[in-house]
Design a binder for these strands. Structure first.
Lengths: 249, 249
DNA sequence: AGTGTGTAATTGCATATGCAAATAACCGAT
DNA sequence: ATCGGTTATTTGCATATGCAATTACACACT
């Protein structure tokens, strides 16, 4: 567990004290300044450094724990949690995991890769500037040998370290990015489209066959990280979610 | 605001006291025993009745408020909240609202209705017993005069009061059910399908045109309430969601 | 080296107390 | 009746205190 600099926690004087503490620590976590595994100072230390009572510090930490940002254990202390890899319904999901949960063998092929400026029509479709340096990938994921999903991805080079050295032969780009980048916001859209000619060939389906299209764009503090277009063939794919009236169950 | 029976709050002796209180009140709310608008007893009353300190009661109530089950205001007290009508992304959404947010005029037609036992293929598709009494509806929703979504719905008669008297001319069944039924669990699945012949005619699209299919089943305490199949034509519909690594933003 | 065993660090929970903030309800003067 | 100010109720927040539960770590003993 990495040592933490206690004086990194700074209050802003607005609102209740417990919430100032909560936000201060939350910001350190989501900004990546305290990466997963970092030790959060014990309640007594925070209490002295911030001039608040232990119960007030406690309240802030309990809430952060309930939100999943930190993990607390008696005697061993509090550490920053790893962000949940997959998120219940429709989100940052690992395709290999998804396939293996179906009990099928996973494989993937990188069909093409290019590094440089984005083509105008790519930049437009993914909401990037033409001046951004990007890596553009097309990957076909297979389940049990058959095409499972076609991935077209653009990665913003400035947001990710070590991109040039990675060839994505072992790990598909989505999974690799989960480990090598930080994100704070994602947006996705789901729609139904008919397969275009080249897509249909790769997915081994007929042209015009209905496909589920998931488009996702990801940012870290307003800077784009990656944008991806996942095309799932036909009605044999469904996304399922379960919830109750007051949130997920 | 309805009066509440204080002695309805019963602790079960397992786990921390604040959590016993929290669960006790939560159960009264989600079971419908305390419907929305019901006044929750003030902290002092709960404190005396339960033999706990005010801070302990307070902790339970604060947490319930954060979860959205109750609303607390100084001096006026605490009341049971109305469940959120629409839920961020893909859930119990009101179609009229959805259309009006797009700035279009909303209308709907009840194309067919039948009350009685479900046809075998309907029962199978919606996960019902053949012996259940149901109402089966087909409704076309329009936006700006043009078909927006085709709804096929089965309502479990035993779970909803006043169903026989309602003709759904004013209010489409989804919205009506939100007000006249309780639900505790929902499951939905999204997939892409091609429009069948009769569906294509109603939606005024070509046969085989890709459509987004949302299937949702809803229960109240393990008893089915309703099941619905929403068919959205073509790629002009998208479901959009935004979130961060630690939950919705 | 291995094996208990005690100790201390750390979080978890509950209580009592006091004051602040919001505002519904009341009351009195016009 | 209407207006305006006062009061009382209820929640919100912070503190201090004490004890319980968990367990990493040091240390003694084989």
């Amino acid at each position: 567990m990495t040592e933490t600099r206690l004086d990194a926690v700074k209050l802003d004087g607005t609102g209740p004290v417990y919430d100032q503490i909560r936000r201060a620590i939350r910001d350190l976590v989501v900004s990546g300044e305290w990466p997963p595994g970092t030790g959060v100072p014990p309640e007594h230390a925070l209490m002295e450094q911030l001039g608040a009572s232990r119960m007030t510090v406690h309240r802030a930490l309990v809430q952060l724990a309930r939100e999943g940002l930190i993990i607390r254990r008696r005697r061993s202390g509090t550490v920053v949690a790893s962000p949940p890899a997959s998120h219940a319904m429709l989100d940052i999901l690992s395709i290999p995991e998804e396939v293996e949960q179906l009990g099928q063998a996973y494989a993937h092929d990188v069909l093409s890769r290019s590094d440089g400026r984005p083509a105008p029509e790519v930049a437009e479709r993914f909401g990037l500037k033409r001046s951004d340096k990007v890596t553009h990938l097309v990957v076909l994921h297979r389940a049990g040998g058959k095409p499972h999903v076609l991935e077209e991805r653009v990665i913003h080079a400035a947001s990710v370290a070590g991109l040039a050295e990675e060839d994505f032969a072992q790990t598909p780009p989505g999974d690799w990015l989960l480990k090598h980048s930080l994100w704070s916001q994602a947006e996705h859209a789901i729609s139904a489209v008919g397969a275009q000619g080249d897509e249909a060939v790769l997915l081994e389906i007929a042209v015009g066959e209905p496909c589920l299209l998931v488009e996702r764009r990801t940012w870290n503090q307003d800077r784009p990280v990656t944008a991806v277009r996942l095309l799932y063939p036909g009605p044999r794919h469904r996304f399922v979610g379960r919830f109750g009236p007051y949130g997920q169950v």
